[in-house]
Computed example of a mutant assay.
Amino acid sequence: MNIISLGAGVQSTTLLLMACHGEITPKPDYAIFSDTGWEPKAVYDHLEWLKKEAERFGIEVVITKKGNIKEDLMRAACEGARVATMPFFIKSKSGKIGMIHRQCTQEYKVMPVRNKIRELLGYKPRQVIKEKVKLWMGISLDEIERIKPSQVKWIENQYPLIEKGMDRISCINWLKRKGYPVPPKSSCIGCPFHDNFAWKQLKMNSPDEWEDAVSVDRIIRRLPKLKGEAYLHRSCQPLDKVYLQEDQLELDLFANECTGYCGT
Score class of each variant (00 low, 15 high):
residue 1 M to D: 04
residue 4 I to S: 10
residue 7 G to H: 06
residue 8 A to T: 14
residue 17 L to V: 00
residue 26 P to F: 06
residue 38 W to R: 07
residue 38 W to P: 02
residue 39 E to Q: 10
residue 42 A to Y: 06
residue 43 V to I: 15
residue 48 E to N: 14
residue 50 L to D: 09
residue 60 E to F: 00
residue 61 V to N: 02
residue 64 T to K: 02
residue 66 K to G: 01
residue 68 N to A: 04
residue 70 K to W: 09
residue 74 M to H: 09
residue 104 C to N: 08
residue 112 P to E: 14
residue 113 V to W: 06
residue 114 R to D: 05
residue 114 R to Y: 13
residue 115 N to K: 13
residue 118 R to T: 07
residue 118 R to H: 05
residue 122 G to Y: 01
residue 124 K to L: 06
residue 129 I to T: 04
residue 133 V to E: 02
residue 135 L to E: 08
residue 144 I to P: 03
residue 153 K to G: 14
residue 159 Y to C: 00
residue 163 E to V: 00
residue 166 M to S: 00
residue 169 I to C: 01
residue 170 S to K: 03
residue 175 L to K: 03
residue 176 K to T: 15
residue 177 R to E: 15
residue 177 R to Q: 12
residue 178 K to A: 09
residue 179 G to H: 03
residue 181 P to C: 05
residue 182 V to G: 01
residue 185 K to P: 05
residue 188 C to M: 12
residue 189 I to C: 09
residue 189 I to M: 05
residue 193 F to S: 12
residue 193 F to R: 06
residue 197 F to S: 05
residue 201 Q to S: 05
residue 202 L to E: 01
residue 209 E to D: 06
residue 216 V to Y: 03
residue 226 L to Q: 15
residue 231 Y to R: 03
residue 246 E to D: 14
residue 250 E to H: 04
residue 256 N to M: 11
residue 257 E to D: 06
residue 258 C to A: 15
